[in-house]
Design a protein around this nucleic acid. Structure first.
Ligand SMILES: [Mn+2]
Ligand SMILES: [Mn+2]
Ligand SMILES: [Zn+2]
Ligand SMILES: [Zn+2]
Lengths: 141, 141
DNA sequence: CAATTACTTTAGAATTATTCTAATGTAACT
DNA sequence: AGTTACATTAGAATAATTCTAAAGTAATTG
């Protein structure tokens, strides 16, 4: 029987945060747990907040936004731009590409990193490539 | 010396609109003129509205939004998603890719359509690819 | 070429996603 | 334990975009 005390909160989340130089606070621990426990996820701040509240985690929407941005800055998350109205965060920070289901606004990793982006031209003078994003937009047929 | 009458408004814009099944109204004519006269452009609604007002064209911001979306629906424009806070419209509707200058929020076409996206996987069951977007994000170095 | 109809424009209000503020709480350090 | 630095939060504020419904204009009709 495990302890149910505060000390018990997901140790790997705490470690992850410490390594990233972020204080492992209660809300950061619990959000990290939601984000990383069940593998790769693509979600919005609203989505994550709803999920947290749903599981009885008390955290404000502002903190969810703060946390998602902090996690992104330290490289635990990556932000994906596919929809003008929502901002998606991705727990998969390895280089990969996305399918975007336009109808339902859903994102999915393209399996097997098979897409190759060939002949990416040199970055213009004085610039360097920070990232190459590929989004394959899908429609139901 | 050209006529300065209403009849004189950019005939190609009028034709373009008629072909697209849109009524050539004064504001649509003038916006189409701004958009397509000077070649390829990447702009936001606010940008276009400011430019219009600047040239003495009287048009509301709501109409600029309406018009940009209508033009997009009929294929005269294409919407590009690169920044969570702004929505860009592109007068180049031919398949091509973009450089995005993260610092100044500027978009540019990648010249010579040299980028090849290889091994795009089959669209999942019941879906078809509507578009493949490639954005090369650049940072100053 | 008026009258009628259908579509368009617009000001301003409303909505939505996100950020800010400044007060309160908690983690880390001494 | 006390102090300090950083984090959380409610609610207000902002910014981009959309909506509403009233007034205007283009197209069609007789
Ligand atoms: Mn993923
Ligand atoms: Mn927004
Ligand atoms: Zn992903
Ligand atoms: Zn372009």
């Amino acid at each position: 029987m495990r302890k149910k005390t505060r000390e018990n909160t997901n140790e790997s989340a705490v470690t992850r945060l410490r390594q990233a130089g972020l204080r492992p606070t209660r809300q950061r621990n619990e959000l990290a747990d939601l984000l990383f426990r069940d593998g790769n996820r693509h979600l919005t701040a609203e989505t994550l907040h709803a999920e947290a509240v749903n599981r009885g985690i008390r955290v404000s929407l502002a903190t969810v936004y703060n946390t998602l941005h902090q996690f992104t800055h330290v490289g635990l998350l990556r932000q994906v731009m596919v929809d003008a109205t929502r901002s998606y965060f991705d727990t998969n920070t390895v280089e990969h590409q996305h399918f975007y289901y336009e109808e339902d606004g859903t994102l999915a990793d393209i399996p097997g990193s098979d897409i190759g982006v060939a002949n990416v031209p040199d970055a213009p003078n004085g610039t360097k490539v920070s990232r190459v994003d590929v989004v394959v937009r899908l429609r139901r047929n």
